[in-house]
């Protein structure tokens, strides 16, 4: 659990400790901060988009079935429409022919929205990296919150990714410069949709979201 954010509360600036709150709870009094309850609500009802791309989609379906039961985490409501969904699980290889559609779906989802890149292909192209029609990672076009490695990741891994996303949401302050996108006016989260070019997508990446990091410097033997 993160520290409660320093919300302006001039009357009593000293925040309650966890021990004090537990003590109050024993007496039937529940105290919480706005940020905490807001994030709690946000993180416990993440509705994913019902959108499968490739092999990982089968494991995503398996995660929503009885054995793994994603509804334990409040995410069993797979919505077919992006307008009703909070979470885009990019479950599989994104080809260059499919990438504009994925980005369009992302743009159609209302804030607050999150993206999980599920599987090696969605992260980096995976085993199909060297294909001429395979996008080398969906994070070149849209911001990704959680990466789940695997080919395909087991349903447990997807559930773990979901729990990680919940933890990430619960740590977000609701005011200030670190507030998430949907609470700020200065961030435009629409991602431009690339065009089909003669040889490749144009542009082949979205520089506001993705910049190639500096390559790792390897100390080679002289």
């Amino acid at each position: 659990m993160s520290e409660p954010a320093p919300t302006p509360a001039p009357a009593n600036p000293a925040p309650l400790t966890d021990a004090e709150r537990d003590e109050l709870r024993r007496h039937g009094i529940l105290l919480t901060s706005l940020q905490e309850i807001y994030n709690w609500g946000r993180s416990r009802s993440i509705w994913p988009l019902n959108f499968g791309l490739a092999c990982c989609a089968i494991e995503m379906i398996a995660a929503s079935m009885a054995r793994f039961d994603i509804s334990r985490f409040g995410s069993e409501v797979f919505r077919p429409s992006p307008r009703q969904a909070d979470l885009l699980i990019v479950s599989g290889t994104v080809t260059k022919k499919m990438a504009p559609q994925v980005i369009r779906l992302w743009n159609q989802m209302p804030e607050p929205k999150y993206c999980i890149a599920m599987g090696a292909c969605a992260i980096s192209g995976g085993p199909f990296k060297q294909g001429y029609n395979v996008l080398k990672g969906i994070d070149r076009f849209i911001p990704v919150d959680i990466y789940i490695p695997g080919c395909p990741p087991r349903p447990e891994a997807l559930l773990n990714g979901l729990v990680q996303l919940q933890a990430k949401i619960q740590g977000q302050p609701i005011a200030g410069p670190d507030a998430p996108r949907h609470l700020r006016d200065d961030i435009n989260c629409d991602c431009p949709v690339p065009e089909f070019g003669a040889h490749d997508l144009e542009p082949s990446q979205n520089p506001t979201v993705w910049q190639p990091p500096a390559p790792l410097v390897r100390t080679e033997k002289a």
């Binding site: 599989g92 290889t93 080809t95 022919k97 499919m98 559609q101 292909c121 199909f128 001429y132 395979v134």
Partner: peptide
């Protein structure tokens, strides 16, 4: 077709 054309034969 082609939205999942991941170049299996070329690979």
């Amino acid at each position: 077709f082609g939205y999942l054309h991941r170049n299996h034969e070329k690979l």
